[in-house]
């Protein structure tokens, strides 16, 4: 929403379709896309520009503000490590967590929802009842428990965070599957004796990619935020790696004495989340409008 153009939302058919149409929605979408791209490029290649390594301690400059002459463009943390490098390398982890955790939540949610929806009947009922049960779980709590108890490796973190929000996805996908499974092409495939698993994989899932993509784009910023919360609790990634969440939670403790420790990582985090949310909203609107126009055409 926000800066993204809203005229589209009110049922107007997007001018054409495809990526170009999406970007033509508004200036906000274009600005946010460019910003995200810039951040992604900076995060991947930026660390190469600095003479410092991520774990290098500069004993002469501990907890010092940004300075051009020392080469610490974002200042140093209270261990004398370069914040420019750490912020960008931290960005790699944050983005990785966002993407991988979302992928995992999609994987679980889509397969679960599609199976339940396609199978229907008793199986569907039982599977969805289980989802109801799981909704009552304090998931955040289980994530904390997992991180505490079974160490801090990245993969586990992806899985734990990703396992949080597959429930919504499962419900959405099930609904979509129900509406898709009696369409002609599915019936045809079934008549030809294509196994159920293949039908789901080849015919059902690809036909709801739109919904999935929209959902995923809104899930990525959520996942990044969850990771930052874990970091606040001290359950983030292992040293010397870091993440935006970790840098921000350390910086928040020194916002008065060393504001740069908060400012740089927090700006990166906030701008990234902001852009991701704007794009996610725009994507959803675009998708709705597209669906609306298709329905209108039908």
């Amino acid at each position: 929403m926000s800066a993204a153009g809203n005229s589209v939302a009110v049922g107007a058919t997007p001018a054409g379709s495809g990526w170009r149409a999406f970007f033509n929605q508004s200036r906000g979408v274009r600005v946010c896309s460019c910003l995200l791209l810039a951040i992604a490029v900076l995060v991947v290649f930026g660390p190469l520009l600095s003479p410092y390594a991520i774990d290098q301690v500069d004993w002469q400059h501990i907890a010092e503000g940004p300075s051009w002459s020392s080469g610490h463009w974002f200042g140093t943390d209270n261990n004398g490590r370069d914040l420019y490098v750490r912020t960008l390398r931290g960005g790699q982890i944050s983005l990785l967590v966002g993407i991988c955790a979302t992928a995992i939540s999609l994987l679980i949610g889509v397969s679960y929802g599609a199976i339940a929806g396609y199978a229907g009947g008793r199986i569907d009922q039982v599977m969805m009842r289980m989802v109801d049960v799981l909704y009552a779980m304090p998931f955040m709590f289980f994530v904390i428990l997992l991180m505490v108890l079974f160490g801090r490796n990245l993969l586990l973190m992806f899985i734990a965070i990703g396992a949080i929000n597959w429930l919504d996805m499962a419900r959405i996908v099930r609904g979509q599957t129900l509406s898709l499974k009696h369409r002609e092409f599915v019936d045809a495939a079934r008549a030809l004796g294509v196994p159920a698993a293949d039908i789901i994989r080849r015919h059902i899932v690809p036909n709801m990619m739109n919904v999935v993509v929209v959902y995923a784009s809104l899930a990525v910023p959520q996942m990044i935020l969850v990771e930052s919360f874990l970091s606040f609790l001290g359950l983030g990634v292992q040293e010397p790696m870091t993440s935006w969440g970790q840098l921000v939670s350390l910086g928040a403790r020194e916002m008065e004495s060393a504001p740069w420790m908060l400012l740089f990582p927090a700006s990166f985090l906030a701008v990234t989340l902001y852009c991701l949310n704007v794009l996610g909203d725009a994507l959803r609107r675009y998708n709705d409008a597209l669906a609306g126009s298709l329905r209108g055409a039908a």
């Binding site: 774990d55 301690v57 490590r81 108890l149 801090r152 359950l235 292992q238 040293e239």
Partner: peptide
């Protein structure tokens, strides 16, 4: 912070390759 600093000293003076393991 202490672990990072000590790790750096060992690395600098002896070349020790220290892995930091943060545990609950």
């Amino acid at each position: 912070r202490v672990a990072v600093a000590v790790g750096e000293m060992w690395k600098e003076h002896l070349g020790v390759e220290l892995t930091l393991v943060n545990e609950e």
